[in-house]
Amino acid sequence: MTFELVLVLAAGLFSVGLFGALSQQSIVMIMMGIELMIGGVIVAAADFWHFLAPAAADGQVVIVVAVVAMAVEMAMGFAVTTALYRARQVDTTDMARELKG
């Protein structure tokens, strides 16, 4: 039963992260939301690994990839934000609409 519960935990983390990403205006908060979503993925991966395929290392590879993705996402996110901020003092997504249709 714990398998499903941990998955629910993962879904919960993912959903809260999603809510944060969708509702927050500040770029930093959105990135925090995304970090939470990836955290959810990591929990799910560990759960799958632990309860479904412990013999194979694929679950762990997914976690490694997720962790790397988290790191890359944060690095690139802050790089873009820095460039954008330096260009126009923009710190919320609402102000950065240039790519509008």
């Binding site: 990403a21 969708l22 927050q24 205006q25 959105i30 997504t93 950065a96 609409r97 509008k100 249709g101």
Partner: peptide, 15 residues
């Protein structure tokens, strides 16, 4: 129309 430029709406669409 969906290309509103607003990031959160893109996320919503993606989800």
């Amino acid at each position: 129309r969906p290309q509103t430029g607003l990031l959160h709406q893109y996320y919503a669409q993606a989800v």
